[in-house]
Nucleic acid binder design. Structure first.
Lengths: 234, 234
DNA sequence: AGGGCGAAGTGGTCAGACCACATCCGCTAC
DNA sequence: GTAGCGGATGTGGTCTGACCACTTCGCCCT
């Protein structure tokens, strides 16, 4: 076993055991190196991995913001992994689209269910979705910004579904999705016409969720994603 | 931007551009350091991240197996990320179970569809699933080994579904699933009785997929996972 | 009592060195 | 001429020691 892997195993064990909880600080790099009898570069490599996976956030200086703080950004690691694997070419865009349909259609169904059940905390998400939709109504909004709003709109329902893992995976897919959508837009016969249709579809999804109609919401988002995918020829 | 992040960006750009394809070797650490005008430790940190994400595999020595080779093990990075985020406690087991139900019920439905369509390449997966099932029949098999066979059995259908991303996520979840299942088994009133039921449920899933009945397969796997989860009280 | 400045401790980076390992090539012995 | 062996070469893995930028805390001087 390589040295930095021993360090990684030690840190993971400590985190799993609750020795360092969320928001707390790991021992300093020099301290860890001495404790484990390894060199500082080896410790750094281990911490770098945790950094990349969104488990810790290294902070310079002194005081409460200094040191490697245990945080939790699941989307960071998952996003980087998905993005790079798409880059290598072994993760086909087709599979990304299919997975997106699967997760999002489930998410909006869950979201609609929560709304129908009068679950607490749903209102802010719906409000945010309405706000994003309104900003997309503007014909002058450039395509790139429209895409950002579009993605934020979709993510709002995933958050509303209330599954942290699904949300993390979807957030991680965001980069890969943005990539293929941007390419797809170039191939469209007419962006303004497509944008108009996307707006209408977004409204249908929002209405279905707000009405608590899970099946309708699910079908609407499925048609929305697959329709664009087909039209853009990805 | 930190130095190692510049290196990382350079490498990602090169991989995305196809400069280093699958199976090819990155330049040596010393060479990269000189090219980018940075030190070797910074290069190493960047490569370590790619290593952790399953993008490259560092190889010592000389010849074809030496150097950082571009590979692709999507499950490596996703698995590590999921495992660690579960460890921090922000990723509830409930969400992992729900996600598993979602992905697996979709996967077996897809698998059944492929079997019904007489898609090529389905037979070996079904054969492997039968083989695993047979090994689980043995009453003397210890619980730990049963779990390994169980997970392999489930993964076989995910592979059969033919979505690389879903397969990667599920493989990544394997560690987290193994953890909660092992804990759950301790709480069971009677392991032999539960094992017998699990065997029967496995057979039902396999039969439904082999028969090409997507709905039945989906319902069977959903009941299987949720049933155990409830009984084990996770 | 107040303000300023330096000590201390953090991660970020660098330079240089040595090690283990795997291959490749040229020399040597047959 | 050929087969075997041993060193040259190049790879990642690790270590040591050092300096830097930054942030906070506390002592000391005014």
């Amino acid at each position: 076993m390589r040295t930095h892997e021993r360090v990684l195993a030690h840190l993971e064990e400590g985190i799993a055991a609750g020795r360092w909880g969320l928001g707390e600080r790991l021992p300093g790099e020099r301290q860890l190196a001495e404790d484990l009898g390894v060199s500082r570069p080896s410790v750094r490599e281990a911490i770098r991995v945790l950094d990349a996976l969104g488990i810790v956030r290294p902070g310079v200086g002194s005081g409460p913001t200094a040191g490697a703080v245990v945080i939790d950004r699941p989307a960071a690691g998952l996003g980087a992994a998905v993005r790079l694997h798409v880059a290598t070419g072994t993760l086909p865009v087709r599979d990304v689209v299919a997975t997106r349909v699967l997760l999002e259609s489930w998410a909006v169904a869950q979201a609609a269910g929560r709304v129908a059940d009068r679950a607490p905390g749903t209102a802010p998400h719906l409000e945010e979705a309405r706000r994003l939709l309104a900003r997309m109504e503007d014909d002058d909004v450039p395509a790139a910004e429209f895409l950002d709003l579009d993605q934020a709109f979709h993510l709002e329902f995933v958050r509303l579904a209330g599954n942290v893992l699904v949300e993390a995976v979807m957030t991680g897919l965001r980069g890969a999705i943005g990539g293929y959508v941007a390419v797809g837009i170039e191939r469209l016969p007419s962006w303004p016409r497509t944008a108009a249709r996307l707006r209408a579809e977004h409204r249908a999804v929002l209405d279905a969720v707000a009405a608590g109609d899970a099946d309708a919401a699910s079908a609407a988002v499925k048609a929305h994603i697959e329709g664009f995918s087909r039209e853009a020829g990805v």
